[in-house]
């Protein structure tokens, strides 16, 4: 059984649907990437899966329907999201952001997890008492990822993590997503515009075109497809 199973999902913002019947599967422990241009509906897809906007159709987590669950309830069931624009709480300190990220768990193991993420991202440790709003873009992205991981999710959703980052930082960031996947066996669903680097860490990929999602294909096959290279990879 797959971890996340989306069937015929429709979603939008009141003024009509943006997604028209999307099918999507994420298996436990795998990295899946959704590629799409600006305005294809990538953020809508993420917000629909995490329950931030109303949606119709079938959304199942481990075989249990979560389509009627509220956004905070979905987090408690083990789906954490790194929203676009990072969504850190700028008025809280770095450490407080991480503690807030662990809100859905009861105290156990909190200190170890803090340690783990401060070790993974030493720059956050240096700034643990600073307001999150003072961090640079790259640091905020690290904070957003570790904050999401503090809830000990089963599935991590990342909405365009490369947005606004330099190529070097982007590479660093995807490397750390890879190690989160490999070391913790974390299932990750990434939506990205930066196709090349995202395909590099994924096992399967989808193409999102104005609200429609095709069938999934192996990541290396997509990367080798000339028409896709032309459309997304700028090659």
């Amino acid at each position: 059984m797959s971890l996340l199973e989306v069937r015929d999902m429709h979603a939008g913002y009141g003024g009509g649907d943006v997604l028209h019947g999307v099918d999507l599967t994420v298996h436990a422990g795998e990295v899946v990437v959704v590629l799409g241009a600006n305005g294809a509906g990538k953020t809508t897809l993420m917000r629909a899966v995490s329950g931030m906007i109303p949606r119709r159709g079938s959304v199942e987590l481990d075989g249990t329907s979560i389509v009627r669950e509220s956004a905070d309830g979905i987090v408690r069931r083990g789906v954490a999201q790194v929203p676009q624009g990072r969504g850190t709480v700028v008025d809280l300190t770095v450490e407080e952001n991480l503690r807030a990220g662990a809100h859905v768990r009861r105290g156990k193991g909190l200190a170890e997890d803090l340690d783990r993420w401060f070790t993974t991202y030493p720059r956050l440790a240096e700034r643990r008492r600073q307001k999150a709003g003072l961090l640079s873009g790259g640091e905020q992205q690290m904070l957003a990822i570790s904050r999401a991981m503090m809830s000990r999710p089963r599935l991590l959703l990342c909405d365009e993590p490369s947005l606004g980052l330099s190529p070097l930082l982007t590479e660093e960031l995807f490397a750390s997503l890879t190690s989160i996947n490999q070391e913790l066996g974390m299932a990750i669903l990434v939506v990205e515009q930066n196709a090349m680097i995202a395909l590099g860490i994924a096992s399967r990929g989808y193409l999102l075109e104005v609200g429609d999602l095709g069938p999934s294909r192996p990541a290396d096959e997509i990367a080798a497809d000339d028409s896709i290279r032309a459309a997304y990879l700028g090659a």
Binding site: S50, M52, G73, R76, T88, V89, D91, R99, R147, S151
Partner: peptide, 22 residues
């Protein structure tokens, strides 16, 4: 934990929901 949740909610309600806060 509750106080932290209250501060997070006041500052950024959307992020607070994404952290599982009611």
């Amino acid at each position: 934990r509750l106080g932290l949740a209250m501060r997070a909610t006041a500052s950024n309600p959307d992020s607070a929901r994404l952290m599982g806060m009611r």
